[in-house]
Computed example of a mutant assay.
Amino acid sequence: MVVTLAAVLLFSGCNTPALYHDDIYNPPVYWGQHVVRPGETLYSIAWRYGRDYRELGSANGIHAPWTLKVGQVLRLDRRGTVTASATQSVSSRPAPRPTKPRVSAPRPTPTAATKPTVVKPPAKNTPPVKQSQTVARIDWHWPHVGTVLAGYSSSGKVNKGLDIAGQPGDAIKAAANGNVVYAGNGLLGYGNLIIVNHNEHFLSAYAHNRKILVREGEDVKAGQVIAELGSSGAERPMLHFEIRKNGNPVDPAHYLPPRQ
């Protein structure tokens, strides 16, 4: 069943006024389908439904570089897509013929001339590679210097990020090094939105911009100006900033440095 407009409005992740300010925390969506529209990326679609882009791509047989086509139908459940032709081709294959078991020749008893090679174990002083060492540390920075109007909250009055005050045209900066994976206004309630991919686990988002200054696919550096603050999709000029880990909103205050 295709996701209805009402479901899209409910799970878009922002408010009109913002759904990221809500009385009920919206869980990830694992039902229905999504038809890819012009301008959408796997990252923005996963963001809309509260999903990790890698998990959503895997469920639909999509892999890096996560390319989509307009009109492509994405399943939102967790099961992989199996086509009827693929199922038929598997079921129509003839059963393999039974094979006779092999009889191994007896191994010769090792002699002085045929002494087996001794493999030395690795040195004990070689430290194992920890999983945490395979992911580069992210050096987070504040995306704007304004006053925090509303902090992160996953209960009560839900806020999936930080609302930061500012004046129209103020510089919005990348919070860390990364790659722009979405730049547009296709997510209801976020206005002009930028999503930056920092590594395989973390994404950050910058909403309500007056003007977007970067393009999808562009690499950005921490502190680089990527947008102008605005009020698109909001009732007042501000920046709504989010950090998501494996598709889930997390409190940016736990990652950003203390204010000076």
Score class of each variant (00 low, 15 high):
L74M: 03
I62K: 05
P94G: 08
T114L: 08
N159H: 15
Y152W: 06
V129Q: 03
R78V: 10
R102T: 09
A105R: 07
T67Q: 12
A171Y: 04
I164K: 02
K69L: 09
A150Y: 03
S89I: 07
A175V: 04
K124V: 14
G166S: 10
S89P: 00
G61T: 05
V119L: 12
A175W: 02
T67E: 13
R97D: 14
A136N: 04
V145D: 13
A174G: 02
H141R: 15
S91C: 01
Q167V: 10
P128G: 05
P116T: 07
P121G: 05
A136T: 05
G161P: 09
S154E: 12
L149D: 04
P101M: 10
A123G: 04
Q133Y: 01
K173E: 12
A150Q: 11
S89F: 06
T117K: 11
Q88R: 04
T67S: 13
V103M: 13
K100A: 15
Q131L: 13
I172W: 00
K173C: 11
R78G: 09
D170N: 10
S155C: 06
A165Q: 13
S132G: 02
S132V: 12
V70K: 02
S85T: 12
R75W: 08
R78S: 09
H63E: 15
I172R: 03
W140A: 10
Q72N: 13
D77Q: 03
K173M: 14
R93M: 13
T67F: 05
A86K: 06
D163Y: 05
T111P: 06
R79P: 02
I164L: 03
R79C: 06
T126A: 03
P127C: 06
Y152K: 02
G146F: 03
A150L: 07
A86C: 04
H141E: 12
L149G: 02
T87V: 12
V90I: 13
K130G: 13
K160V: 03
D77E: 09
R107H: 07
H63L: 14
Y152V: 02
A86G: 11
T134E: 10
A123K: 03
K120S: 14
S58W: 07
D170H: 01
G156E: 11
G80H: 08
R79A: 15
A105P: 05
A112D: 15
T99E: 15
T126W: 00
L74F: 03
K160M: 09
L68C: 08
D170V: 03
A112E: 14
W142L: 05
L162P: 01
S85D: 15
W66D: 13
R102P: 00
T109V: 15
P116Q: 11
K124I: 08
